[in-house]
């Protein structure tokens, strides 16, 4: 099967980056309390996870080292993780063995998941398919996989951040709008082969509705003063003033 061009490029990119994410994966797996995003904001402050996960079927779209699925499993959920990078899944499998937590891990593209309709209560993604897959393909697929009443929760880079972050790697976003908002969708960078996807607010809402999802929340994350991150593309001063990360919550309508 031939992969779509952006999927093949991101697979190669993530197979290459996987070793850089081993340590973060190990740390996250060892955590009891989930933390979110590049500022590590605690779940107690964010409320990204549904309150009762016991017995819930969950799928993590673009799971990487599958640390979210590990947190979900410890809360009684039955997780499945899918990722585009075999190298990332290698780390995930090793951590499963080390922590004695078993759940299914699939190597594949979140835009085309080989699982039946309406088989999950929660679909979740943190900087996974939510930015590395095409929303016009992965979001309908997530809606298909959810049971009526099931939840979709995902974290992405802030919309305004994506207008302000320079093309060159390693330079933090400034206070200038560097690119237009209208038409934002596919992002490519001069320094690597990866392809990212970011949509305008209104376009996300249209996409939810078109796929039978109700918009439930948009959490615009703001780190505490003095928060730190290892990522070079944004400073905490910037993120204190404008949202560097956003979490969307949507629910599949009961009447389909």
């Amino acid at each position: 099967m031939t992969l779509p061009e952006h999927v093949a490029r991101n697979r190669a990119a993530w197979d290459g980056w996987a070793t850089d994410y081993v340590e973060a994966g190990e740390r996250a797996w060892a955590q009891d309390e989930p933390t979110w995003g590049i500022w590590g904001i605690p779940e107690a402050e964010v409320g990204m996870l549904p309150p009762d996960l016991a017995g819930k079927d969950t799928i993590e779209l673009g799971c990487g080292t599958a640390y979210i699925s590990a947190w979900l499993a410890r809360r009684g959920a039955r997780p499945v993780g899918i990722d585009n990078s075999e190298a990332q899944l290698g780390t995930a499998r090793r951590l499963q063995a080390e922590h004695g937590l078993e759940f299914a891990l699939l190597h594949g593209n979140a835009e085309e998941v080989p699982l039946p309709d309406e088989s999950f209560d929660l679909a979740i993604s943190e900087y996974g398919a939510s930015i590395w897959a095409d929303p016009y393909r992965w979001l309908p697929e997530a809606a298909r996989l959810l049971r009526p009443g099931g939840e979709l929760v995902f974290l992405v880079n802030g919309t305004i951040l994506m207008l302000c972050v320079p093309d060159e790697e390693g330079i933090a976003a400034g206070d200038r709008l560097l690119r237009p908002y209208f038409g934002m969708h596919r992002f490519e960078w001069p320094d690597d082969e990866s392809v990212e996807f970011h949509l305008p607010y209104g376009e996300w809402i249209r996409l939810f509705r078109r796929n039978g999802l109700e918009v439930e929340d948009l959490i615009e994350l703001r780190p505490g003063e003095g928060a730190t991150t290892g990522y070079p593309f944004v400073t905490s001063e910037w993120a204190r003033r404008w949202p560097s990360e956003e979490i969307w919550r949507a629910r599949k309508q009961l009447d389909g």
Partner: peptide, 17 residues
């Protein structure tokens, strides 16, 4: 906006920029 609308018994149907 989304939270205020939902808390006031609305469903958000769209945002046209």
């Amino acid at each position: 906006w989304i939270r205020l609308l939902r808390d006031s018994a609305f469903e958000v149907e769209g945002l046209v920029e």
